[in-house]
Simulated assay, not measured.
Amino acid sequence: MNHRLKALTDAGVSIWLDDLSRERLETGNLADLVANNHVVGVTSNPSIFQAALADGERYDAQVRELAAEGADVDRATLVITTDDVREACQLMRPVFEATDGVDGRVSIEVSPGLAHDTEQTVAEAAELHKTVGEPNVMIKIPGTEAGWPAITETVAAGISVNVTLIFGLEQYRNVMEAYVSGLEQAADNGHQLADIHSVASFFVSRVDTEIDKRLEATTDGPGTDPALRGKAGVANARLAFQAFEEFFSGERWEALEAKGARKQRPLWASTGVKNPDYDDTMYVVDLVVEDTVNTMPEKTMDAVADHGEVRGDRVRPFYDDAAAHMQALAEAGIDYDDVIAVLIEEGVDKFVVAWDELQTTLAASLEAARA
């Protein structure tokens, strides 16, 4: 057991792996990370599945079987991805049971092309939940405007949700509102609220990437100050946690909590550092606070295990600093709302591209298997 990762866990941060592949499952790699690296959850996304399918010969036999059955590419994609998620759920089941359902979770995302289609998102969320068929699966729904009512409707049906692609504070407040509204409807529908869990995946590193790019294009004024760079991602996330604490309090929440409702924990996503000049553990060690999840690519997890320093709560004591930094960025000409709008659009587009590449690869494999 790595003592640095243990310190992170002891500080109240759940470590989830931001990756899934059949190779990890069949070689015992994922089981090893659970046993030795304090990994208590797994997230997947279209980019992760695209990489797994493109590089993984371990899917070949199943592709041949699906081709022989006459499966089209949509059917093959559903079967292959849900099979991996189901197996990961089964592996994580002891963690799920030991933590009363808080951890031991595995996430699978609705098709990214549905990000602006509420009705189809709800339908696919229900289908994925039924197809995986494990109690510890979480369905990922994007935190787009069309995603908010889909979150509410899915939670109201008793399905646990991982809301993805959250970048902005107002967007995040709408996500929390969607979750709580869903819980209220779930209670009316007769569901046990204690069985419904949710995380809100708040993306970190991409905020720095976009804001740094805008700062670097600045030729005069306060925006030229290099001290402004590389700090917005953490500051934004710290303010998100402040919003989380404010939202999950008061009479409305207490009434739900009395019925067994669980808070929607913030999940720090996009925690791999994009700029090699920055500390490769910053999006982990600078966001340590209890009641959070940090989903990491294995490279980031290894960096934290090697040299990450856990220094207690790095969020609550820094609310004022975070607000001051975001104000300084505004004074330097950074349009926060525009940054968030761009990041949401780019986030959806990147997943759509990855999904299309996955299906193109799989279509070619099915065709070759039929030849």
Rank of each mutant, 00 (worst) to 15 (best):
A305H: 11
G28K: 14
R64V: 11
Y59M: 04
K274H: 11
A217I: 01
D302N: 13
S14M: 03
D208M: 12
G41Y: 02
E357I: 10
H129I: 12
V180W: 09
L362E: 05
E246P: 03
Q171V: 06
I166C: 02
T82S: 13
E246Q: 14
A150L: 04
E290S: 10
A178V: 03
N136H: 04
C89A: 08
F49T: 00
V289M: 09
V288N: 00
S249H: 14
W148C: 04
R206L: 02
A258P: 09
F247K: 06
E251Y: 05
D18H: 02
L5M: 12
Q90H: 13
I139A: 00
R64E: 12
V34C: 05
C89H: 03
S160P: 12
L228S: 05
T154D: 01
E257A: 15
P94T: 07
V102D: 15
P226S: 10
A332R: 12
V79C: 03
D10G: 08
A369D: 09
S21Y: 04
D60F: 03
P149A: 08
D338F: 12
R370V: 11
A305V: 03
T121S: 12
L30C: 04
M176N: 01
D100L: 14
A227M: 10
K350L: 01
S198D: 01
N136T: 08
P135W: 07
G168A: 03
Y59W: 10
S160R: 00
V234Q: 09
P317M: 06
F241W: 13
D72M: 03
D277S: 10
I108K: 00
T118G: 03
D19K: 08
E124G: 14
T82F: 08
S249I: 05
T9W: 02
V273A: 06
F96S: 04
Y278W: 09
K274M: 13
H325Y: 03
A54E: 10
V285I: 14
V284E: 14
M138R: 00
T281H: 11
E87G: 00
E109G: 06
M301I: 07
L343G: 13
D18G: 04
L362A: 09
D338K: 10
G104D: 05
L165V: 15
Q171F: 06
E357Y: 13
D313G: 08
E65P: 01
K299H: 06
E153Q: 14
I108A: 02
V102Q: 15
G223E: 09
F96R: 07
L33G: 07
L343R: 09
L267T: 00
L78S: 08
P276F: 01
E257F: 04
Q50L: 04
T131A: 15
F318T: 07
A150S: 10
D212N: 14
T300W: 14
Y172S: 02
V315M: 02
R314M: 14
V353T: 15
M296S: 08
